[in-house]
Amino acid sequence: MSLTRADVEKVSLLGRLRLSEAELDKMTEQLARVVGYVEQLREVNTEGVQPMAHALDMHNVFRDDALAASLPRDAALANAPKRDSECYRVPAVLGE
């Protein structure tokens, strides 16, 4: 499983990054080396080993269904790069 430039192009769309041709080349070269390095995990026998997604094994952590204060709208929208008095704004998403 060696990483190709085509993989990198596909991933750059999945990850929503625009990369120039030069960046794609460099990224392919650098990622290929890292991916090559992590491949060493294949030699580890993980037969019957439970995956460990969390550092602590805790479960059933809940909150009560109790109202908490929401942000005032201006505070919620304050950091938006483009907004009007009520909403965030983006280029038309029709047909997306």
């Binding site: 952590v61 908490a68 204060a69 009520e86």
Partner: peptide, 24 residues
């Protein structure tokens, strides 16, 4: 009214974290 029922968690602001609603 639009955007009057939001907080750092449901806006997905940096650093915010989800905690599950038991009733749900």
């Amino acid at each position: 009214q639009p955007n009057t029922q939001t907080c750092p968690v449901c806006i997905g602001m940096p650093g915010s974290l989800p905690v599950m609603n038991r009733e749900a």
